[in-house]
């Protein structure tokens, strides 16, 4: 078996049992809607969807604004003395439909649909629970109808990445591997993990994060190279201060012009003791003067006994 075949065989075996969930298309639509909402109103959470559709609308008698009610409940009687003929649409009975069917039905009637979700039992997931106004009510054309659908999206456990804790509890994380970081940009806190010898013998590393970044991501990573490992520290790029080098490094540690490359500064405090500080492109992109921050971090490093 040649290597291409062996690789194909291994890849096939790895994903053999993987199946996309049947609800994928629905999830995509829901996601699209929620993005539209966030885009438009800046609020996340309840998915509200607006469909602007013009259509032929019948003239019906309107008797005032109806109150919310369970789907399928008898339409409110209309015992009013003063009815006026205004263009209106009868809210259809959406009981038993799923969210998409209900949405399509309303859209077909020229109504604007607002979808809200409410937690409920798994067996009625995505089913319409109630509408406001209720079924049978008459609403002005193009008005909005709120559909409440049951949501039983399984709550996925948050993705956790097992990270090594080789150096134990580092407190604020600023002192490890024989050095101390005198300066860090504001808003960073210790990433609660540390590794030993991942970058050669002996090397130490940890990260600092802006609160809220997902597990496994970093904002700033610091690697201390000592002894033989110091040969692994980068001397690439410009010497921006004495024994201090700043470069954009790509995936293989090569100097790269790619905007997604990682800005990396390394400072040799001794020939056999170097500290490399990397700034994630995500984080660096949010700073005004990312390079200045890296230089300040490098300048603030001191050796500790």
């Amino acid at each position: 078996m040649n290597v291409e075949e062996a690789l194909k065989d291994a890849m096939t075996a790895q994903v053999h049992g993987v199946q996309a969930p049947p609800s994928m298309a629905q999830q995509v639509r829901r996601r699209r809607r929620s993005h539209m909402v966030r885009f438009r109103t800046g609020t996340a959470g309840v998915a509200v969807l607006t469909a602007a559709v013009a259509g032929a609308v019948p003239f019906v008698l309107h008797d005032g604004s109806p109150a919310p009610a369970k789907v399928g409940a008898a339409p409110t009687a209309a015992p009013t003395g003063e009815t006026t003929a205004i263009p209106g649409v009868v809210v259809p009975n959406l009981a038993g439909m799923n969210g998409k069917q209900a949405f399509m039905k309303l859209r077909a009637l020229g109504l604007t649909a607002k979808i809200e979700t409410r937690p409920g039992p798994a067996e009625s997931h995505d089913m319409v629970l109630e509408t406001t106004p209720e079924a049978g009510a008459v609403v002005p054309e193009k008005s909005s109808v709120t559909i409440v659908i049951v949501s039983n999206a399984p709550t996925e456990p948050p993705q956790t990445v097992e990270l090594p804790q080789d150096l134990g509890d580092l407190g604020d994380g600023r002192t490890f591997g024989g050095m101390h970081l005198g300066y860090l940009p504001e808003g960073l806190s210790w990433g609660h993990w540390s590794g030993k010898n991942g970058f050669g013998d002996k090397s130490y590393t940890t990260t600092f994060v802006v609160p809220g970044v997902p597990d496994g991501e970093y904002s700033v990573q610091v690697v201390v190279f000592t002894g033989a490992a110091a040969a692994n520290a980068s001397k690439k790029g410009d010497e921006v201060a004495k024994n201090t080098y700043l470069a954009s490094l790509g995936e293989g540690g090569e100097v790269s012009k790619d905007p997604s490359a990682t800005r990396t500064i390394s400072r040799f405090l001794r020939p056999d003791f170097a500290v490399e500080v990397m700034m994630s492109p995500n984080y660096g992109g949010k700073l005004d003067k990312a390079d200045d921050e890296l230089k300040k971090i490098a300048a603030g490093i001191t050796l500790v006994k």
């Binding site: 990445v161 590794g195 991942g198 970058f199 994630s280 995500n282």
Partner: peptide
């Protein structure tokens, strides 16, 4: 995958 690169390299290097 790139965003996780550094941390990945460490865990794989061990």
């Amino acid at each position: 995958a790139r965003r996780r690169r550094v941390i990945r390299e460490i865990s794989f290097a061990r």
